[in-house]
Simulated scan of single mutants.
Amino acid sequence: MTIQPAKLSDPAVRAFVTAVNAHDRDAFMSLLTDDATMSDDGSDRDLDEWIDREIFSSNGHLDVANESQGGRALVANYRNDTWGEMRTRWAFTVADDGRISRFETGQA
């Protein structure tokens, strides 16, 4: 069962998934705070380098299986041209202005 991005509960997370799946880097970057951080499998990564490699240069795509914590935690099948498809977890911290200040991902 997949949750359509438009039906995700949290507006920032909904926009994040939509931007990833549309391969819209400008929209994606506009969702992040200026000092946004991220981690992959528990290790902090360079945000710009990671999103280029794992999302935009490799055709990343999220199919959300479920959400929790008011829509700020997802389990999704994530696929890209580098790694194929894998079950992943995503957690988002959303700042007061509605933009994402941190996201954490990793294998679920």
Rank of each mutant, 00 (worst) to 15 (best):
M1H: 12
A6G: 08
A6Q: 11
L8F: 00
P11Q: 06
P11G: 06
V13R: 04
V13Y: 05
R14Y: 01
V17S: 06
V20S: 05
V20T: 05
N21D: 06
N21M: 01
N21E: 04
A22Y: 04
A27S: 11
A27H: 02
F28M: 06
L31H: 01
L31V: 07
L32C: 04
D34P: 03
D34H: 04
D34N: 04
D34T: 11
A36E: 07
T37F: 06
G42C: 09
L47W: 00
E49S: 15
D52K: 13
D52I: 07
E54P: 00
I55W: 01
F56G: 03
S57I: 07
S57L: 12
S57Q: 15
S58V: 10
N59Y: 14
N59R: 14
G60Y: 05
G60E: 09
H61Y: 14
D63E: 15
V64T: 02
A65M: 13
A65G: 15
S68H: 06
G71Y: 09
A73N: 12
L74N: 08
L74I: 05
V75T: 14
N77L: 10
Y78S: 02
T82A: 14
W83A: 12
E85G: 04
M86K: 12
M86T: 07
R87M: 09
R87D: 10
R89L: 10
F92Y: 03
F92T: 00
A95H: 04
D97W: 00
D97H: 03
R99K: 15
S101A: 08
R102A: 14
R102H: 12
T105M: 08
T105C: 06
G106E: 08
A108T: 08
A108E: 13
